Simulated assay, not measured.
Amino acid sequence: MASVESVMDLGAKRTEIEQLREQSADPELWNDQDNAQRVTRRLSYLETEVARVEAIRERIDDLPILFELAETESDPEAKSEAQAELAQLRKDIGDLEVRTLLSGPYDQREALVTINSQAGGIDAADWAQMLQRMYLRWAERRGHPTEIYDTSYAEEAGIKSTTFAVKAPFAYGTLRGEHGTHRLVRISPFDNQNRRQTSFAGVDVVPVVEHSDHIDIEESDLRIDVYRASGPGGQGVNTTDSAVRITHVPTGIVVSCQNERSQLQNRATAMSVLQAKLLERKRQEEQAAIDELRGDGSNSWGTQIRNYVLHPYQNVKDVRTNIETGNTSAVLDGEIDNFIDAEIRWLRSQEDTGG
């Protein structure tokens, strides 16, 4: 626990908390809404982290007393409770250790998540929407604010694609291992012959850009289209052409936003998403150059990262870490922390070994 506390540098966090409290008390702060929200989110995150470590430290200090009382009173029930607390403490300290592994250059950023339906027709579109719900439920369970920027609905059911932000510090570092292809096997609810269907959806996770990031985007490289936002089944949700789609011609990257009423606001949000994707592309190109110098031409991430089997048996298994569970309903309801923690450890081991 002492090594975890040292790596987390509680002293520095407490100093930053005091500075952020001073900023949040300044009435001028809210003249810039975006900056004010960043300050308050960062303050809330740091206060929660410090309180979490302090609470675990108190429980560690209390643990010998629990065992001593159980021994003194020869109380089997009290001893059982003390042993359960010891097991829980080990798990909680392990969770803290995972957090100390998030030391990449962008790990502390908020995250932009894009989900696209792939092979599998209507089932793939439904699967993409199931994944969107899974991540939004995961964020909700952790108290992380989210904002859906764009959703393109499929004609019959589900979605073609969606982009949403997870607005919490370290969201990118936490979720970046989710990047890749997710495979679903089930009896198709859309097949009147009840045949088994395999569907695929791609998840893309990039860090949110900050003012310090320098991404050059030439206006001449952009193709900007405006259109009317639509809901499920092609139903119009806006009476004006306020949705914005931006194509970055040199790279072919396409982003869109339709969550705001104003075309200008949608354009600004779409530009920030484009900047985030270009930043991630730049990071990947730099990493590829390093890998080439190292003589590693392969991509250790692979493509397919997790299998979700709902028929003929129930199982979710990560193909990289071999973490698995038969509680598929809990996973699809956002209980994916075991997978995420294992991914963080796996990614760090890959980076440490140059994989």
Rank of each mutant, 00 (worst) to 15 (best):
Met271Gly: 11
Leu63Lys: 10
Ile323Met: 14
Ala157Phe: 08
Ala119Ile: 04
Glu140Cys: 03
Thr240Glu: 15
Ser103Cys: 12
Gln284Phe: 06
Ile344Val: 15
Glu22Asp: 13
Gln287Asn: 13
Gln314Trp: 02
Thr72Val: 09
Asp123Cys: 01
Ala87Cys: 12
Ala276Lys: 04
Glu219Met: 11
Thr146Gln: 02
His211Ile: 12
Ala276Trp: 03
Ile148Phe: 00
Gln23Glu: 15
Pro27Lys: 07
Gly104Trp: 00
Cys257Phe: 07
Phe170Glu: 09
Ile340Arg: 07
Asp26Phe: 00
Leu175Phe: 05
His214Cys: 05
Gly121Ala: 08
Val113Pro: 00
Thr162Arg: 00
Glu351His: 07
Thr162Ile: 09
Pro169Lys: 03
Glu97Tyr: 03
Thr151Gly: 04
Asp26Tyr: 09
Ala229Thr: 08
Arg52Pro: 03
Gln304Cys: 05
Glu219Trp: 12
Gly121Val: 03
Tyr106Val: 04
Leu293Thr: 07
Asp123Trp: 00
Leu278Ser: 01
Ser161Thr: 10
Ser242Thr: 02
Ser44Leu: 11
Thr321Gln: 04
Thr251Pro: 08
Arg306Ala: 07
Ile323His: 11
Leu175Asn: 02
Thr353Cys: 04
Val7Arg: 14
Gly202Val: 01
Ile336Thr: 09
Glu351Arg: 12
Tyr227Val: 05
Pro189His: 03
Ala84Asn: 09
Arg52Tyr: 06
Gly355Asp: 14
Arg109Ile: 02
Leu66Glu: 15
Arg281Ile: 01
Tyr45Pro: 00
Thr151Pro: 03
Gln304Asp: 15
Asp296Arg: 06
Lys160Tyr: 07
Gly180Cys: 10
Glu178Asn: 01
Asn307Ala: 09
His311Val: 00
Ile253Tyr: 10
Ala78Gln: 11
Leu20Gln: 01
